[in-house]
């Protein structure tokens, strides 16, 4: 359907925030009339009719090597992270919270320590390695919960907004913009000081701040999709909104959703770290990476290992999650669609 520029929805915001013009296919003009012989019987009784049809379908997508560069690094780090989160506490050599002041501030094994505490101990004599593994579980739990909650809510808003359009769309998008414009960490400080610091509240706070980017990006996908002929055909088939959303829209935004989720996973882990660093995150003595960083920052000159290891764990996980998200994004477009 040819739609003039400037028509409603012809401007969309791409995922990178830039504006793009959508859906202005050039319809052929008169000039392109094809020289067909105008004979009425041409359509009928022609034995060559089907010989003219193309016998073989050429698969249009031959370029499968394009993504040969696989994300081994980020994949490996993420796998390690998830593994640590799942079974870390089981394989941890020591308790994550057991205080033993006689063991305080032992250095890592390669800096004069012992194998009993390979990454040293903290100011309360707790094993840094065990706490790192315990922290992985918290980061994983917080990260995944935030991603699932905000992804589900963002998807929900995007579907309603994009599919229904009109005033509901306008209202929901104002709301989304407002959420996007509000700095997450500020929101976190405000909410945490009202509701208190707990793991559960961290998850809720980050989800409250995180759904909006899903809503924005997926809504623009929905706007693109709902003008596609296959959706129009489904409507003509008599399909209702729920069916179209479930059957056509959600599957087609899934790859976008996964990309966003992967990117958000890193952001959520980082935010949890920042909140714990600020003392409004997962409360001690639970071993959160952010909390460990905060505690270790007091001993940077004397016991550098306290801040270094959680710092490395946090940065590597966030980096890997971002790299993975970028790779998925670069890969998700060219397959099957134009």
């Amino acid at each position: 359907m040819a739609r003039p520029q400037g028509a409603e929805e012809s401007l969309c915001v791409a995922s990178d925030g830039s504006e793009c013009l959508q859906d202005a296919p050039a319809e052929q003009g008169w000039e392109q009339g094809v020289a067909l012989q105008p004979q009425a019987d041409l359509l009928l009784d022609s034995p060559t009719a089907d010989a003219a049809a193309r016998p073989v379908d050429l698969a249009r997508d031959g370029n499968r090597n394009r993504h040969a560069h696989r994300p081994y690094f980020s994949g490996g780090i993420l796998a390690l992270f998830i593994l640590a989160g799942l079974i870390g506490p089981l394989i941890a050599p020591h308790s994550t919270t057991h205080v033993s002041l006689s063991l305080f501030l032992r250095p890592p094994v390669f800096a004069g320590g012992t194998w009993a505490y390979p990454l040293g101990t903290d100011e309360l004599g707790r094993d840094v390695l065990s706490r790192l593994l315990g922290g992985a579980r918290i980061s994983l739990l917080v990260g995944l919960s935030v991603v699932v909650l905000s992804g589900a809510f963002g998807l929900f808003v995007a579907m309603i907004s994009g599919y229904l359009g009109g005033r509901i769309d306008a209202i929901l998008m104002r709301f989304t913009d407002a959420t996007l414009a509000f700095p997450t960490i500020l929101l976190a400080i405000v909410l945490a000081s009202i509701f208190g610091a707990s793991e559960q509240n961290v998850i809720i706070i980050l989800a409250v701040g995180g759904w909006a980017s899903y809503a924005r990006v997926i809504r623009s996908e929905v706007l693109r999709l709902k003008k596609q002929d296959f959706v129009v055909m489904a409507v003509v088939m008599g399909a209702g909104p729920l069916w179209i959303i479930r059957r056509h829209l959600i599957p087609n935004v899934m790859s976008t959703l996964v990309v966003l989720a992967t990117l958000q996973l890193g952001a959520a882990i980082l935010s949890e770290g920042a909140m714990s660093f600020l003392g409004i995150g997962v409360p001690p003595p639970a071993p959160s990476w952010g909390g460990m960083l905060a505690g270790g920052s007091n001993y940077l000159t004397t016991a550098w290992w306290l801040a270094l290891f959680p710092g490395i764990a946090l940065s590597l996980t966030v980096l890997a999650s971002n790299l993975m998200g970028d790779w998925l994004r670069s890969r998700s477009d060219p397959t099957g669609r134009r």
């Binding site: 055909m233 008599g238 209702g240 059957r247 099957g336």
Partner: peptide
């Protein structure tokens, strides 16, 4: 109207590649 569309009307759009859901 939905019943009528479902039972009595068939629609063939212009762009055959957009007419089909890429994931279906």
């Amino acid at each position: 109207m939905r019943t009528t569309l479902h039972n009595d009307i068939g629609y063939i759009p212009q762009d055959p590649t957009a007419a089909l859901d890429p994931l279906c």
